[in-house]
Amino acid sequence: MNSEESIDLDRLCVLARLSLEPEEKEKLGPQLARIIGYVEQLKEVDVDGVEPMAHAIPLENVLRKDEAAELVDRETYLRNAPDSRAHQVVVPPVIEG
């Protein structure tokens, strides 16, 4: 795979909901291509039959008892909201989809 061709920056911006200025794009494109070219060396490794490792130390069944904790004044967790009204967080109009 030619990584430089395969990187569609605009699509990545959409997936990551991140706007980039044109000059940022100009810089980032080649940098990403180079990094991806570098990480492609992993293709050399024979991984047949190797289990993927998702956790540094494997544990199982880490479960919590179903108990309700005491509630804290809701403002405690709303105080950092840039905009709120009637104890709800305000966002610019969202088109239902």
Binding site: I7, L9, L12, C13, L15, A16, R17, L18, S19, L20, E21, E24, L28, Q31, L32, I35, I36, V91, P92, P93, V94, I95
Partner: peptide, 27 residues
């Protein structure tokens, strides 16, 4: 609007290296 809010807030709020890594991780 609510959609543009994501793009702009994140575009303005994150620095260069963070953006680079988010893009790489997304890729």
């Amino acid at each position: 609007d609510g959609i543009e809010l994501y793009y702009k807030s994140r575009g303005e709020g994150f620095g260069e290296e963070v953006k680079r890594r988010i893009m790489l991780g997304t890729y």
